[in-house]
Computed example of a mutant assay.
Amino acid sequence: MRVLEDGSHTGHRLAIAESVLAPHTQGPPQHRHARHDEGFYILSGTVRFTVGDKDHDATAGTLVMVAPGTPHTFANVSDQPAVMLSTFTPDLYVQYFRDLQDVLAGGRPLTPQANIDAMSRYATEPATDFAAGPAAEPAGNSAADLA
């Protein structure tokens, strides 16, 4: 992951990151954000989003928006790499990715519990109950597959 904007140039209203997901890469445990919206724009490949108990495959050109409170995760289940841009409004959650980088740099494994521990510092919690909440709202090309 590469942080393109950490919020320092946007008054902390917006952060943007680019992620490259290797083939067969699992994402974070399914989770909910309490204080920020998250957007994903797929640049190449296919990313599988799980929202509650439903899976949606997003291909290049698809924009997926996830509102606060929506249970979600993502993964690359394909044989090809996938690249996506992620937005965080406000920028609170971008520090989570730096925390994960510190875990790896320290030689510790990136376990589901390490992910959950880092999430908890940024108004985010695991979503194991799939409680009703607003659904992810796709926009842009190819988004009809996620509706």
Rank of each mutant, 00 (worst) to 15 (best):
A67R: 02
G7W: 08
L104H: 05
T87K: 02
G69S: 04
S142H: 14
Q113P: 08
A22V: 10
G7R: 04
V83P: 02
A127Y: 13
E125F: 15
E18V: 01
F130D: 15
V47Y: 03
V66H: 00
S19V: 15
A127W: 12
A17H: 00
A131Y: 09
A60K: 00
D79T: 09
T73P: 12
S78N: 06
M65W: 09
V47I: 14
A127V: 13
L43G: 02
G107D: 12
Q30F: 01
T46H: 06
F49K: 11
A105W: 08
T73E: 11
A60S: 08
T87E: 03
R121H: 13
A105D: 15
R48Q: 14
T25E: 15
G45R: 05
R98E: 14
A34P: 13
G107M: 04
V66N: 07
L85A: 06
R2Q: 07
P29Q: 00
L85E: 12
S19P: 07
P81F: 06
E5C: 10
E137T: 06
V64W: 12
T73W: 08
P29R: 00
E38A: 01
L146M: 13
P112R: 03
D91S: 08
G27N: 03
R35C: 10
P126K: 04
R35N: 15
P134H: 07
A123M: 09
P138F: 10
T87S: 06
H36T: 11
A75T: 13
V47L: 03
F130C: 12
I116M: 03
